[in-house]
């Protein structure tokens, strides 16, 4: 063996580690670690700054009834606004995605997709101005109608706001803001549905609607859910648009069309921070910690759902 040594193919079995490789690997690893450090740093800052508010006696917290009483309506408002946004935006976004992928002529589909993406590029303050000066006044007659005809439902109990700056309006503005996120992801997933699945459904005599129901939507379910959760994440944290649009005065209420609404956490921080000092700032940071935890949970939930669904979607 040793005598009949054949010329081995060029290059050793161990790959050469050139400088470029090492720099690239190092910087990529560094970037990855940096993300973790930043996340941990933010969490540590929030916890450290929130501790004085958590340990403070109840009378010292703004409102005088303790931290839980201060944050509870804010968490409620945050979840309610985001939930309205999600309930309105998800079906609409899925319908838009389906139209673009399966119904619209190809050329129209491209333009339409571009337009929907463009919605994501509008700064949230512009949405806020649009909501407060256009949408809110236009909604007043509709809210009046809701109060008159559906007033027995607690959501529409009234009295109707004179300006339309209500929880429902805020939810609608948020819905439009998260629409592009959900529809973009749904669209990508719908485009990936194997043509064989669709053709098989059609070959079995399914109509186009039945084909979508049986082949496209089950395949894209994880994408729809994942997109919704991303949208929910944005809706939970949205600050400026809600600050402008929502008339904030009052505690927990399911009444969606009156002037008295709970604030959302992000909007409340934006409103109260400029004139806050001492323990009030810590209280705001504690509410920020609550928001941080909520968004973290929502995102983890989304990952979990997407991963779990992926096993059953038929994609593999």
């Amino acid at each position: 063996m040793t005598a009949t040594r054949t010329p081995s193919p060029p290059g050793p079995t161990r790959p050469v580690r050139r400088l470029g490789d090492r720099v690239f690997a190092g910087s990529a690893r560094g970037a990855g670690i940096l993300i973790l450090v930043i996340l941990a740093g933010v969490a540590a800052f929030l916890v450290a700054e929130a501790v004085p508010a958590i340990t403070a006696p109840a009378e010292e917290i703004p409102g005088g009834e303790g931290l839980t009483a201060y944050i509870a309506p804010l968490v409620f408002g945050t979840l309610l606004a985001a939930l309205i946004a999600l309930v309105v935006a998800t079906p609409l976004a899925v319908a838009i995605a389906l139209f673009i992928t399966h119904f619209a002529p190809r050329r129209l589909a491209q333009g339409l997709g571009y337009l929907v993406d463009l919605l994501a590029a509008i700064p949230s303050i512009v949405y806020g101005f649009w909501g407060i000066s256009w949408l809110a006044p236009k909604m007043v007659p509709f809210y009046r109608w809701l109060e008159d005809n559906l007033g027995f439902i607690p959501f529409f109990a009234g009295p109707t706001s004179a300006t339309g700056r209500t929880m429902l309006t805020a939810g609608l503005v948020l819905a439009i803001m998260i629409l592009p996120i959900i529809s973009a992801i749904s669209r990508e997933v719908f485009l990936q549905v194997p043509t064989l699945h669709k053709e098989a459904a059609l070959a079995l005599g399914a109509t186009r609607w039945e084909m979508i129901k049986m082949a496209v939507i089950p395949y894209g379910k994880s994408g729809i859910i994942g997109g919704s959760m991303l949208g929910l994440g944005r809706a939970l944290g949205e600050t400026l648009a809600v600050t402008l649009v929502l008339s904030v005065s009052g505690g927990i209420t399911f009444n969606l069309i009156s002037s008295g609404n709970p604030a959302t956490i992000a909007a409340n921080i934006a409103l109260q921070f400029p004139e806050s000092t001492g323990i009030a700032v810590n209280t705001l940071i504690a509410s920020g910690l609550a928001l941080f935890v909520i968004t973290l949970v929502v995102n983890m939930l989304a990952r979990w759902i997407v991963n779990r669904r992926a096993d059953f979607s038929g994609a593999n």
């Binding site: 407060i132 004179a162 300006t163 005065s249």
Partner: peptide, 21 residues
């Protein structure tokens, strides 16, 4: 007082007063 209309800043109040009847 809970339940009233609320606006952000002086401009928010003026906007809200002007927008309603």
């Amino acid at each position: 007082v809970p339940g009233g209309e609320a606006g952000q800043g002086t401009s928010g109040v003026v906007q809200a007063v002007g927008a309603g009847n």
